[in-house]
Amino acid sequence: MEMLIAFQLENTHSSMRPIRAGVLRGSTISPLLYSAYIKDIPRPKTGVQLALYADETALFLRSNNFWNVLLRLQRAIDELIRFI
């Protein structure tokens, strides 16, 4: 069964995207597979910070310009999508 996921920021929604791989949450092999997968995850080239913790991934950036933040975060997301 294929899962679909979307991103939401205030009233803006991304398109639905399929999750093509994964293991069940709580599986004994999950931590090992996650560590192997994220080891070579690219760091964004847009100055956006990438934070990884357990099975969570976050992108963050500080700026005085809201639209600059949106543009740079979207570029970072696009880079990560190419990695997947």
Rank of each mutant, 00 (worst) to 15 (best):
I77C: 12
L61G: 03
Q8S: 02
A58E: 08
E56C: 04
D40N: 05
S30K: 11
L24C: 15
E10D: 06
F83R: 07
R43P: 05
R72G: 04
I77P: 00
L9T: 07
T12L: 02
A36T: 06
I5A: 13
P18G: 14
E79F: 02
L71F: 13
Q8T: 03
L70K: 02
F66S: 04
S15F: 12
L70D: 03
L52H: 09
L32D: 14
I81D: 03
I29C: 13
T57C: 13
P18T: 15
I84W: 05
P42L: 03
L59P: 04
T12I: 10
S63V: 11
F66E: 05
V48E: 11
I41E: 12
T57D: 05
M3D: 15
A21Q: 15
S14Q: 04
S14W: 05
R72T: 06
A21Y: 12
K39F: 01
D55M: 15
A54G: 06
F66I: 08
P31S: 04
E2Y: 13
I5E: 05
F83W: 13
S14V: 10
I38G: 00
I29G: 09
I29R: 11
D40S: 03
G26S: 08
R17D: 13
L50G: 04
K39E: 06
M1G: 15
F7C: 07
R20Q: 09
P44M: 04
L80V: 10
